[in-house]
Amino acid sequence: MSAGDANPERMSVFSPRLAARFDALVKKYPVKRSALVPMLLYAQDEVGYLSDAVIAEVAARIGLTEIDVRSVASYYSMLRFKPAGKFNIQVCTNISCMLRGAYELYERFQDELGVGHKGVTPDGVFSLEEVECIGACCWAPAIQVNYDFHDDLTPDHVPGILKTYRGKAQGAEGTATRA
């Protein structure tokens, strides 16, 4: 059986929303495979990481082998094969940020969270990552929490940022419990 024969509906880890997004995306391109890189990222956004099931489903939906999908996925730094925290804190320490105190900022995050590079807090709320340039050099030092930018920071901003996201995490859980 080739990868293209798999029936995605039967084994789907995609939500209906993600599946619909994929179907729309894949139709746009002259070549189906062009959907691969963004699709991996969108699937990761939903599932949290590229699990075996996600890899298998993306491969089946595009008509590629799993090894081909893994080979591509391993190239891109935002794609991960292990879960991160609910909020992934990415601290840029590249030159423009470094000159304006990015390492002090990064150290403060490490101290507050008790984890290092690519570490996840025990409650799963946060993960921390030292990253390369995120394109916010003129507003340095800058970080991204998932996709949200925070710029012009000092280490004193760290507790407030963590508090905000911790609140969001609790809010989300509360909603889930009530539901």
Binding site: I95, E132, C137
Partner: peptide, 11 residues
């Protein structure tokens, strides 16, 4: 793909 460190104009 603006990724050259020190570059954020396209942003």
């Amino acid at each position: 793909d603006e990724s050259e460190p020190a570059t954020c104009k396209d942003h």
